[in-house]
Write a protein that binds this DNA or RNA. Structure first.
Length: 111
DNA sequence: CTACTGACTTAAA
DNA sequence: GTTTAAGCCAGTA
């Protein structure tokens, strides 16, 4: 596994329950701007069961999967169990977006 | 080697 | 609201 993926996954692992981050946001925090597609790749290739992958949604606050997809339902359930509110298909990002403090990133990611 | 594919994003029309 | 188009880069064929 590449260092890029490791970094991405380590950022995702910091997202607390009932908060979400977008793919682009994760890419930015990992020091790889404009690499949102790599975030999805990294998540797909990860087998880590403790990774809170479900807390990553797209920039519109919507789940990235198609509504018919089994993973869509799974992710929706996981988020709702954590108390994330859906307004239709969208999450209120103003309320639920993860905004990590600088010390969180510095300390936990060894930047 | 080239070509295509994404659990994406942004800007522009 | 919508649809395009370009950008991104590790996998895959």
């Amino acid at each position: 596994m590449s260092e890029s993926y490791k970094k991405i996954l380590s950022v995702v692992s910091l997202i607390p329950a009932s908060y979400v981050a977008s793919y682009g946001q994760i890419a930015d925090l990992a020091g790889m701007p404009n690499c949102s597609r790599m975030v999805s790749k990294a998540l797909k290739s990860s087998n880590n069961k403790s990774l809170p992958w479900h807390r990553v949604v797209n920039s519109q606050g919507k789940i990235a999967f198609k509504p018919g997809d089994p993973l869509f339902v799974l992710q929706l359930n996981l988020l709702q169990e954590e108390g994330v509110e859906f307004k239709g298909k969208k999450i209120n990002l103003d309320k639920h977006r993860w905004q990590p403090s600088l010390d969180t990133l510095l300390y936990k990611l060894n930047y």
